[in-house]
Amino acid sequence: MTRLLSSALALSKRLFNLIFSFFYSIGEIVDFFLDCVKYFITEKFYFNIFLKQFIKIGFNSLPVVGLTSIFTGMVLALQSYTGFSRFSAESAIPNVVVLSITRELAPVLAGLMVAGRSGAAIAAEIGTMKVTEQIDALKTLSTNPFNYLIIPRILAGIISLPILVIVGDIIGVLGGYLICVNLLNFNPTVYLQNTYNFVQFIDVFSGLVKASVFGFLITFMGCYHGFNAKGGAQGVGQSTTYSVVSSSILILLMNYIITSFFFRL
């Protein structure tokens, strides 16, 4: 009986610690976010760093996002054909392709790709700077690390992701077009007309809103985990893993939340 009681006590203690550390982490993330907002409003903005990051996160991710989009569009056209041909609804394929790409696939896949590529790089770079005291050096050189390292990256993420998604939308639709026209013998003009007539502003807009939010999540989590890296190389590796895992999960979670918000409109 005593053993049972003590193990129950130990279990509840562990559970309490787990819940406590969860809420503590949330508190720290919120604190980090508020610091970002405060320093963004009150201190210097490094436009040249922002531009560098915009190119790194946005422009340099174009090949990855482009490839992901074109293959997704192609697969989507093929799979839709398999299903729709069973009840003679092949003409709906352009509509399904454009809707799926703009509302869902382009933003989510671009988000996940950029999280793996740029989010990890941000966490590794800032984490290395943290453990090698470069961030401390910045502070003693009268430079606020939030303004120099964090804010330009977050803004670059927020702005570059929607642009990447617009490119992804076009390439994804093109992928579907190539399959339908070249493989499934669709009329090219009719395909394009169907696509153009069917797509609405809200479809593209909701995808861009998602992209902006994902851009924020990816860069914010990368910066947060990098900035809080501890120890040496192991700590940097851990921060990179945390950054990719947390931003990927948050992308999927926010995707649902934003989708349900636009669903009600």
């Binding site: 090698t132 470069q134 401390d136 050096a137």
Partner: peptide, 11 residues
């Protein structure tokens, strides 16, 4: 002015 242990130059 600080000389850090690993120099901490911005790489």
């Amino acid at each position: 002015g600080i000389l850090f242990q690993n120099s901490a130059l911005l790489d």
